[in-house]
């Protein structure tokens, strides 16, 4: 079962702001097969969260989405109406958010909120829905699941709430799960547990998983494929092995230097950092968006940047032919 579940081609997200337009996502493409995990990596403002919201059709009314192709299991998401989109959401594609503390409705019990996800898409009895909810709560590692159903969100810890969010995403057995920084707001020990849980569930249920994160440590642990985003573009994409063993784009290399490697980084040795800030995304950007911060920048970087493909489908956008240079 290696069929493609999601195809994104030339996706753009534009946010109108007063005088101009903020081009938050600038023509990105990727695809995802069942059972695969794609990690979208980038710093704040790189457009990675908006990309995931765009796929789910959850952008606000003012925000404009456009794509040459946006297909979910052969269905054109750009062409279907809001009702059909809603029918897909929560049923075949589900989302887990960054803030477990505020992502559950404080007025309803955990049980109500879990069952709602099922009732919206399936005809099931209340008892049947609750039974399913208890099963899933057990599956995401929540003990005494039955009594949890009657609890309110404020009675649970952040880690438990994120597990509830995951169980809620799983209620209708979706084929695609998008997790937007699911571990950022959690303690480090809980982060590891949640990641392991996501990886296990993915394997068990043959899910396609998109994980949006800025944490390369997370990526290394879970990703099959990686897309590195910078200023609304995917600057490098490939398998996890390609990206980690052979980073091509100067930005990806910069990111790699920012994380300590056990055994390699000596105590007291300064970690790398990338100087400068992300350019303004209002209006168009000529040439490479990273050139102001790039150590390899030359005059050529002002011109249109070619997309290069190295061996094994490893893609990156850079004026310099870094990957072949290295091979040569």
């Amino acid at each position: 079962m290696a069929d493609t579940i999601l195809t994104v081609e030339d996706l753009t997200v534009d946010i109108p702001i007063g005088a101009g337009t903020l081009h938050a996502v600038r023509g990105i493409s990727f695809d995802l097969k069942r059972g695969e995990t794609l990690c979208i990596v980038g710093e704040s403002g790189s457009g990675k969260s908006l990309t995931s919201l765009a796929v789910m059709g959850l952008l606000g009314k003012r925000i404009k989405r456009d794509a040459a192709k946006l297909e979910f299991d052969g269905k054109d998401l750009a062409a279907i109406g809001p009702n059909e989109m809603r029918a897909l959401r929560g049923d075949r594609m589900a989302m887990i958010f960054q803030e477990p503390m505020t992502s559950l409705n404080p007025a309803y019990t955990i049980g109500d909120q879990l069952c709602e996800a099922l009732h919206l898409h399936r005809k099931v009895s209340k008892a049947g829905a609750e039974k399913h909810a208890v099963e899933l709560l057990g599956k995401v590692g929540i003990t005494a699941a039955e009594s949890r159903l009657k609890q309110y969100p404020h009675q649970l810890s952040g880690g438990l709430r994120q597990r509830v969010m995951i169980a809620m995403a799983l209620m209708c057995e979706p084929e695609l799960i998008i997790a937007d920084e699911p571990t950022t707001a959690l303690d480090v020990t809980i982060q590891a547990q949640i990641l392991r849980l996501l990886a296990d569930l993915k394997r068990e249920m043959n899910l396609a998983l998109i994980l949006v994160t800025h944490d390369l440590g997370v990526v290394a642990r879970i990703a099959d494929k990686v897309a590195v985003m910078y200023a609304g573009e995917i600057v490098e994409a490939g398998t996890a092995a390609q990206i980690f063993d052979n980073p091509a784009h100067p930005y990806t290399r910069g990111l790699m230097r920012c994380i300590p490697v056990p055994g390699k980084t000596k105590p007291g040795e300064p970690l790398g950092s990338i100087p400068g800030i992300v350019p303004s995304l209002v209006g168009g950007i000529e040439g490479c968006a990273f050139r102001e911060r790039c150590e390899l920048a030359t005059a050529a970087c002002r011109k249109t940047v070619p997309e290069r493909t190295a061996k094994g489908g490893h893609r990156y956008r850079c004026v310099h032919d870094i990957a072949s240079a290295k091979v040569a």
């Binding site: 789910m56 959850l58 809603r86 029918a87 897909l88 959401r89 929560g90 049923d91 589900a94 989302m95 958010f97 803030e99 505020t102 992502s103 559950l104 409705n105 404080p106 007025a107 309803y108 709602e116 996800a117 919206l120 898409h121 969010m165 809620m168």
Partner: peptide, 24 residues
């Protein structure tokens, strides 16, 4: 955030507005 969660579940606009938002 929980309003976004409700949308992500596939709840319709009316349901989000009255069940999830107005209740709070």
């Amino acid at each position: 955030d929980y309003i976004r969660t409700a949308h992500a579940k596939g709840a319709g606009a009316g349901r989000v507005l009255f069940k999830h938002a107005l209740r709070n």
